[in-house]
């Protein structure tokens, strides 16, 4: 049995004439300790899958199960302790009026855990933030530091699964590698399982052992890292994606534009 099982997950959003199918029977599973990727262009529904798993959307159909327990059966706080999420934009994911201390202690207060001061200090240390940041406000921190705070907030409840929603795409290129390495270290240290959403194949290649390619709310293809390296991608969309990630090709861009018009 896998740690995460997504079975026939579908989601509609909007009402009446504006009702749209966002996810179209998504199924995949993630083993414990694995980093599983979801790739696809903007609007393909990859972040939405994470938001469904995190419980931010409730109106989906199908099955989401962690450790054999389905979302519908699980008690909410227990689910939250097990499944945490890091958001894309560190400028939007930290409360502007809360100090770092408040931000990190808030989940601990919600779950009524003890030794709050100690736990906050420890998690700051784990994400590589010096203690002097503890009483700062988010606007006094750089983008990379903010993202470290967001990571610390996800880690402070000691989850086994962390959902990463494009965690580096809002960051400077020089910071991206640092943050990705931090994720790798934390995975070893805390025995984590990641579900990583990205539109950047090189990030996926760097982090993930297997990944699913999504397009228009559907999984087009599931690939392992080895298959990617051996150029075994079969779906035409995946091939285009790989080709596009290798270099900018004027012919490819033109072909894409024509295909979209047709």
């Amino acid at each position: 049995m896998s740690l995460i099982d997504i079975d026939d997950l579908s989601l509609f959003l909007g009402q009446g004439a504006r009702r749209r199918k966002i996810l179209d029977s998504i199924s995949f599973s993630v083993e414990a300790g694995q980093t599983y990727g979801l790739v696809g262009e903007s609007g393909s529904g990859k972040s939405t899958v994470l938001r469904c798993i995190a419980g931010l959307y409730r109106q989906w159909t199908g099955g989401i199960a962690v450790d054999g327990q389905t979302f519908r059966q699980a008690d909410r706080l227990g689910w939250c302790r097990n499944v945490q999420m890091v958001f894309q934009d560190p400028y939007g994911s930290l409360h502007p009026k809360h100090q770092i201390e408040d931000i990190l202690a808030e989940p601990l207060h919600i779950h009524k855990l003890d030794n709050i001061g100690e736990r906050v200090g420890k998690v700051l240390d784990q994400v590589g933030l010096p203690g002097k940041f503890r009483y700062r406000f988010p606007h006094q921190l750089s983008g990379g530091q903010r993202q470290r705070v967001a990571i610390a907030r996800a880690m402070v409840l000691r989850p086994s699964i962390v959902l990463l929603d494009e965690p580096t795409s809002a960051l400077d290129v020089s910071i991206q590698a640092e943050i990705l390495n931090l994720f790798m270290d934390l995975r070893e240290e805390l025995k984590l399982t990641y579900l990583l959403v990205s539109h950047d194949l090189s990030v996926i290649d760097h982090m993930c052992s297997a990944f699913a390619v999504m397009q228009a709310g559907r999984i087009v293809e599931v690939l392992t890292r080895d298959a990617l390296e051996n150029n075994e991608a079969s779906a035409p969309y995946t091939r285009t994606l790989i080709e596009a990630s290798e270099r900018y090709d004027r012919d490819l861009a033109l072909r894409q534009a024509e295909a979209e018009q047709a």
Partner: peptide, 26 residues
Amino acid sequence: ASDFIAAAQVSGASALRILRRHILPI
């Protein structure tokens, strides 16, 4: 719809707590 409210929801905060601790101060 902002991410810091979503983060509070993911942490398991109740609606009352989100209103009091996260929305009220703003």
